[in-house]
């Protein structure tokens, strides 16, 4: 391994059209290994479409896109093996126990029984919830579920984990604990690709891209963006960019 961090996501001129509608208009960016990359944008700016393409769920209209070293046109199965995914809506199976959920997802990604056991124990210990391993998911508090869902998403130690609004509706304490988990994962070399509507969370990212109307209008470190726009918070950066667009319309 070189000391230089490699690119794990490389996107060149990604275009996605639905009929006449251009959802993604020549997106170009890279994400490095172990980076926490914030992918922001207003509702309907095209974030979800881009994430679907990167996860191999949808094919782009044109552009060169490599995820985890694999091509999104032909190697979607290899991509899926090497990524993890979690969204606010994606929850674990409510009627299975905590450890059954781990077993199920571990099985999907081809982990051995032993590996699943070890990693389940590791994550439960880290979350300090070993005592609920046998409980049905329905019965455990919401904040824990969110953290469990994240643990399950990185159970197979993917190269990249995609988090789609992972902290929506979560209390401020849990939200911060969640971000600590994100930092740890990044420290372990897992690239984190995250969307959020909480602008303070944008500050926690190494680099942030802001999508407006299908295009990436800004991409830099939070400090760099604030400097560029001469404002004090990411919230202001975001509102500047998104407002400019709605004023145009």
């Amino acid at each position: 391994m070189t000391t230089d961090r490699q690119n794990v996501i490389e996107v060149k001129n990604l275009v996605k059209k639905f009929g006449n509608f251009i959802a993604n208009d020549h997106l170009t960016f890279e994400v490095k290994q172990g980076e926490i990359f914030g992918f922001l944008g207003a509702n309907g700016a095209g974030k979800t479409t881009a994430i679907k393409i990167l996860c191999g769920l949808q094919s782009p209209t044109s552009g060169e896109i490599k995820v985890a070293g694999f091509d999104v046109y032909h190697q979607t199965n290899l991509i899926k093996r090497n990524i993890g995914y979690m969204s606010q809506k994606f929850s674990l199976y409510e009627d299975l126990t905590v450890s059954q959920n781990f077993e199920f997802y571990g099985g999907i990604y081809g982990l051995t029984r032993k590996q699943i056991k070890e990693r389940t124990a590791y994550f439960l210990k880290k979350l300090e919830i070993t005592h609920v391993a046998g409980k049905i998911l329905k019965e455990i508090p919401l904040g824990w579920k969110q953290k469990l869902a994240f643990s399950v998403a990185i159970l197979h130690h993917p190269k990249i984990v995609f988090l789609d609004e992972p902290t929506g509706g979560v209390d401020p304490v849990t939200r911060r604990q969640f971000w600590e988990m994100i930092y740890e994962a990044a420290n372990d070399g897992i690239t984190v690709f995250v969307t959020t509507h909480y602008m303070d969370e944008a500050e926690y990212c190494e680099r942030v891209s802001i999508m407006v109307d299908g295009r990436i209008e800004a991409l830099d470190t939070p400090a760099g963006l604030k400097q560029k726009f001469g404002v004090n918070s990411m919230n202001e950066v975001f509102i500047r960019l998104a407002r400019a667009q709605s004023a145009e319309q």
Binding site: H197, F238, A242, S246
Partner: peptide, 13 residues
Amino acid sequence: DEPTTGVDAVSRM
């Protein structure tokens, strides 16, 4: 009831 959940910062404002 949660009229701004899942809505972007500009729309919320």
